[in-house]
Design a protein around this nucleic acid. Structure first.
Lengths: 203, 203
DNA sequence: GTGATACGATACGGTAGCGTAGCGAATCAG
DNA sequence: CTGATTCGCTACGCTACCGTATCGTATCAC
C-alpha cells in the first residue's frame, strides 16, 4: 500500500508509476491466490486494468515482471533487537519472521519464489530466496551470540538461519501453515539448549 | 528400471503395462530435466513414443499422470537400522535420506511434489510430501530414543523429522544441493547435543 | 494552452497445449 | 487360428497465452 512503492528511481511520469504499481500489485494478488502457474500477462491485464501494450512498454517479458514483483513484495526481514541479549534477539527475530510468512499470502509468495528459482534462472538474482532468509539482521544476532560467548566464533549464520527457518518453511510449503510457528519454537528451543543457552537436558 | 514397476494391480494386458511404464518413466525424466513446468502430455508423447490417444486411455488428465508418477517414483525412505542404538540409527537414517535426495533428479522430484501439493489439491493424497519424510522408520527410531531414555516420551516424530530434514530440503529447493548433507549433519549434531546424547556444550 | 508522452482499446499472427475422433495395424489370449 | 483388445497415427477443434502494431484519447510538464 506504499503510495509510490518506489518501484525504482522515482523521478518519473506519475502515469508510469501508477501503471507499474497496479501491475505489480495485481501480480502479487494473482500469485497469492493461485500460484505462479496462473500468473500470466493477460490475467494481469484483466486484474489491473493496465493494457497489455503498457505492460510491454515497461517490461520485456513476464519473467521481468515476476522478478520485479518478487523484489518489491518480498516479505521483509524483521529489524533485530540487540538490546536485550542474544537469546531474546534470536527468538524474537525468528518468531517474528515466521509469524510474518505464515499467513497465506506470504507463504504462497515464498513458494513462488522457490518456483522462480527453479524454473527461471534469470530471475534468481532478483528473488534470492536464501538471502531474504538471512540478511544482515541474522548476521548481527549471531555476532552478538559469539560476543556473549555462547556461540563458537566459527559458526555460519547462513546455516543457523536455515536450521531455524527451514523446518517452518517446509511446513508452509507442505500446506501446514498452522504448525509453522510451533515448529520454529521447537527449532529455537533445541538450538539454544544445544549451545547451553537454556537448561541443558530434556525439554 | 523395475521391469514391471507394479503400476497397480498387475494382472493386465502386457501392452498396457508397457505403455504405462514408458509414460511414467518419461514423465520422471522430463520432470528431473526441466521441472514441472515443462511436463506436458505432448512432451511425454514425444519422449515415450506412446501415442497421446493411448495416454488418455489410461489416465483422464495430466494431473493423474503426475500423481501416478509421484506415487511410483517417490524417493523411498531408508530402512532404519535399530540394532546399534538410537544415535547411530538416527544419524544413519537422516543422512542416508538426505544423501539420497540431494542428487539433481531427486531434488527436482521433491520440488515437483511441493508444486503438486500447492497447485493440484487433487493430487495431494498421492504425493503426501510430509508422510514421505516421516514414515514408519522415523517413528521407530524416535521410539528407540524414548526407550533409551534420551528423548522425552511426548516428543513428536513428525516435528523431529521436519527439524532434521527441513533445513536440507530448503537448501535443495534453493538450488544449493551441495550443502544439503552438511546442513543435515549440523542439524543432527544440534538436535543430539540438545538432548544430551553427545557432549553438552559448544560444538 | 501546447507539445510531448503515456495510455487504453482493438486487432492480429503465431505457438503450445488440451482432449477427442476415426482407422488400420499390431499384439494378445484362448 | 481367430476374435478381442490395444496400439500408433493423423487430423481436428478449442483454448490460453505471447508479443507486436495501430490509433485515437487522456494526461502530464512547462
Amino acid at each position: 500500500m506504499t503510495p509510490p512503492p518506489s518501484t525504482e528511481t522515482d523521478p518519473l511520469d506519475p502515469r508510469v508509476a501508477r501503471s507499474k504499481t497496479r501491475v505489480l500489485e495485481s501480480a502479487r494478488e494473482l500469485l497469492t491466490e493461485s500460484g505462479a502457474q496462473s500468473l500470466t500477462i493477460e490475467r494481469i491485464v484483466d486484474r489491473s486494468g493496465v493494457a497489455k501494450t503498457t505492460i510491454y512498454r515497461h517490461w520485456n517479458s513476464l519473467a521481468e515482471v515476476m522478478a520485479d514483483m518478487v523484489r518489491v513484495h518480498r516479505p521483509p526481514m524483521p529489524e533485530p533487537d540487540l538490546d536485550h541479549g542474544f537469546e531474546h534477539a534470536l527468538r524474537t527475530f525468528v518468531l517474528t519472521y515466521i509469524e510474518r510468512i505464515a499467513v497465506p499470502e506470504s507463504s504462497w509468495l515464498i513458494a513462488a519464489m522457490f518456483e522462480l528459482n527453479l524454473h527461471m534462472p534469470e530471475v534468481r538474482q532478483a528473488s534470492s530466496v536464501e538471502r531474504s532468509q538471512v540478511g544482515e539482521g541474522m548476521r548481527a544476532i549471531i555476532g552478538l551470540g559469539v560476543q556473549e560467548g555462547v556461540l563458537p566464533a566459527d559458526i555460519d549464520p547462513l546455516m543457523v538461519a536455515r536450521l531455524l527457518s527451514g523446518p517452518s518453511i517446509v511446513a508452509l510449503l507442505g500446506g501446514e501453515a498452522e504448525v509453522a510457528v510451533e515448529m520454529a519454537r521447537y527449532a529455537l528451543d533445541r538450538f539454544l539448549v544445544s549451545y547451553g543457552v537454556t537448561a541443558c537436558g530434556s525439554d
